[in-house]
């Protein structure tokens, strides 16, 4: 099981040159900070998007190929969940970055999602990001 997953993971990886990370954050200074962290990790940033509507429109229009999504929970026009739902269904790993997040509730709603409390340390975010992009099997293998 683990081997098959690893193989498929390797194949996707070889086809994708730089991985794109969706960034949803309505505080531009926070976005600026996250953008630096993401780009320093060797990824490109898709965003930042500041509202749920913006993200939904973007997902509808462009069908972006995303390696992961970092989502602020509370946005100008409401909570990010409609967008999170879509991303989750599409199999995009989610990282919630929020000052008000209820970690357990989020993880039961989106199994496998990571939660980083705001303000998040850059090191923790980098680690969370690389784990999310590598996929859950990576973690399984490391544990066994």
């Amino acid at each position: 099981m683990g081997v098959i997953a690893f193989a498929s993971f390797c194949r996707t990886r070889c086809y994708r040159m730089t991985k794109k990370i969706l960034l949803v954050e309505d505080e531009f200074f926070v976005a600026l900070d996250l953008q630096t962290i993401i780009e320093d990790g060797g990824y490109t940033v898709d965003g930042p998007y500041v509202s749920v509507q913006e993200v939904l429109d973007h997902l509808d229009g462009e069908h972006p190929d995303l390696a992961c999504a970092i989502l602020d929970v509370r946005l100008r026009d409401g909570e990010v969940f409609p967008a999170a739902e879509r991303l989750h269904e599409a199999g995009v790993p989610l990282i919630f970055h929020s000052g008000h997040a209820d970690e357990r509730a989020l993880q039961s709603r989106y199994p496998g999602a990571a939660v980083c409390g705001k303000p998040c340390s850059p090191a923790l975010l980098r680690r969370t990001l690389s784990m999310a992009v590598a996929g859950p099997d990576e973690g399984d293998r490391a544990a066994s």
Binding site: F29, V30, D33, Q35, T36, K118
Partner: peptide, 17 residues
């Protein structure tokens, strides 16, 4: 206070570039 921390983090990030 949290907001100021966020802005300062952003400033440091931008400055580092």
């Amino acid at each position: 206070v949290k907001n100021l921390f966020a802005i300062i983090s952003g400033i440091v990030s931008a400055a580092s570039r």
